[in-house]
Design a protein around this nucleic acid. Structure first.
Lengths: 173, 173
DNA sequence: CACTGTTTTCAGTTAATTCTGAAAAATCGA
DNA sequence: TCGATTTTTCAGAATTAACTGAAAACAGTG
């Protein structure tokens, strides 16, 4: 192998490993982040067995996390002619990745929060005491803000990348 | 106790408990989220002992998470005249809470990611092979995007709430 | 300085999450 | 339908994260 090829392989390996460690911070498990990094930097779609071998993980682990990534929409199943096995390839477009992650985070983090805030804002609506009013007001303000943020996330996600950049640059640059 | 007071107490307890469960999704531990919810809805600053009792947790746990919340800036230490104990009170302003959480997430999630992307974009800069160029390009695009997002987060966080709403509404409403 | 109340630390325990590996189920060609 | 290959499931093992409780350190008070 050439020096260049070795260098690339090593850089890629390190990237995959470090991206995996980062995943923990992001609240997604290490393996999932590693597989994502691996496929994002793979020149070709990969099979479950190749992923297992590259990351030295079990079949069950590889399988579960590949399917989870497919569910997120961060990777796709690719079928090749004359091949029974499934191949996986990552979405590589950064804006696409961003909107997918944003959508998923909204679903898992924002929406449940909103539901809780709404529930307790409602339940405390009629309480007359000073403390009751304060509680209600706090719930209401949080609900209003989170609802607003949620809507903004939708709007931004639905923009085309170029337009989002243009907009942001014009306004805040 | 009046019916209203019972109702409020129950609503608040439930809110604290459910907010804690949500915390897990957000990548912060349950206790920390519970304490935050408790203090956000507390009519008065609370002591460590009161927090321990309310949530039925150990002194060590209460202490660690109170200090962590102080480090984030989501709660403050309050000293009362003639009292040796520390009291804690939460920041209740939603925009303040948002900017604090945004800053912390940026520090813990965005910046390390940016550092990694930058490192491997640099390391692969000179690799001439097709695969090397593709790897470099992927790193570069991710770095560019994450860097851009990071800057935007700063800009938005530094706005006054009213101005942020006005801006967002005008552009995307 | 000695006493009391309060905060901080941390070794050991418990709980939660993730991973393995093997078995079961599904898929496909002949 | 059978056999070979591939995917899926899941009970138990391993790992990681969170929590307890008690002891040590610290900070005021007389």
């Amino acid at each position: 192998m050439t020096t260049e090829a070795t260098k690339l392989k090593q850089a890629r390996d390190e990237f995959v490993s470090q991206w995996g460690a980062l995943g923990t911070q992001w609240g997604i498990n290490r393996t999932m982040a590693q597989i994502h990094a691996l496929l994002m930097t793979a020149p070709q779609p990969m099979t479950t067995d190749e992923v297992m071998e590259d990351l030295e993980i079990s079949r069950g682990n590889a399988h579960t996390n590949l399917k989870e990534l497919v569910a997120w929409g961060l990777i796709r199943v690719v079928v090749k002619k004359g091949e029974r096995r499934e191949f996986f390839e990552a979405e590589k477009d950064v804006w696409q990745i961003f909107t997918i992650v944003a959508r998923e985070r909204k679903r898992r983090e924002i929406e449940p929060a909103l539901a809780i805030l709404h529930k307790y804002a409602e339940e405390s609506r009629e309480i007359d005491s000073t403390e009751g009013k304060a509680f209600h007001e706090q719930m209401r303000q949080l609900e209003e803000f989170v609802g607003f943020a949620s809507k903004m996330a939708d709007r931004v996600s639905s923009l085309k990348y170029g337009f989002a950049v243009q907009l942001a640059t014009k306004l805040l640059g």
